[in-house]
Amino acid sequence: MTAPTTAPHRTAAPTWVPACASHRLQPERGVAVLLPGGAQAALFRTHDGALYALDNTDPFTGAAVLSRGIVGDRAGEPTVASPMLKHRFALRTGASLDDPGVRLAAYPVLEDGGRVFVGAEPL
Rank of each mutant, 00 (worst) to 15 (best):
A75E: 15
D58W: 13
P78L: 08
A90Q: 06
R68L: 15
P59Y: 01
G62S: 12
V31K: 09
L43I: 06
M1D: 10
G69N: 03
V102W: 07
D55E: 13
T79D: 05
V17D: 10
T11L: 14
G94R: 05
G113W: 09
A50V: 01
T79K: 09
V31A: 04
G94C: 03
T2E: 13
A120W: 08
L123M: 11
P36Q: 12
H23R: 14
F117G: 00
M1W: 14
L97E: 06
A105N: 10
L35A: 01
G62E: 03
T11W: 05
T2S: 11
T6Y: 09
R115T: 09
S82P: 08
L85H: 13
G76H: 03
T2H: 13
W16M: 15
G30M: 01
T79S: 07
T57F: 02
A3Y: 06
P4R: 12
R103F: 00
P122H: 12
V65A: 11
A53V: 10
L110T: 02
I70N: 05
G37R: 04
L97R: 09
Y52G: 03
S22Q: 13
R24F: 07
T46R: 09
L51T: 02
Q40V: 01
L34C: 04
A75K: 07
G72S: 00
A75S: 11
R92H: 10
P122K: 11
L85V: 01
M84L: 13
S22E: 12
F89Y: 15
M1Q: 07
V80F: 10
P108E: 06
G113A: 11
M1F: 11
A12I: 06
P36M: 10
S67R: 00
G30Q: 00
L34W: 05
M84C: 11
A63E: 14
V31T: 14
T5F: 01
S96Y: 06
L25N: 10
E28V: 04
V31G: 01
H9V: 02
F44N: 03
T93P: 00
A64V: 14
G76Y: 01
P36D: 09
A7E: 09
I70E: 13
Y107N: 05
A50R: 15
A53N: 03
R24N: 05
P59H: 03
P8E: 11
L66G: 11
V65D: 11
L54P: 15
A63T: 10
H47I: 11
P100S: 11
T93F: 03
L123N: 02
A105S: 15
D99Q: 08
A19H: 08
P100K: 09
D58A: 09
T57N: 01
L104H: 00
L25K: 12
V17Y: 06
V31Q: 13
P100D: 13
V118L: 02
Q26V: 15
G113T: 07
P18R: 12
R45M: 00
H23D: 15
M1S: 11
A42F: 10
T79E: 05
E121S: 15
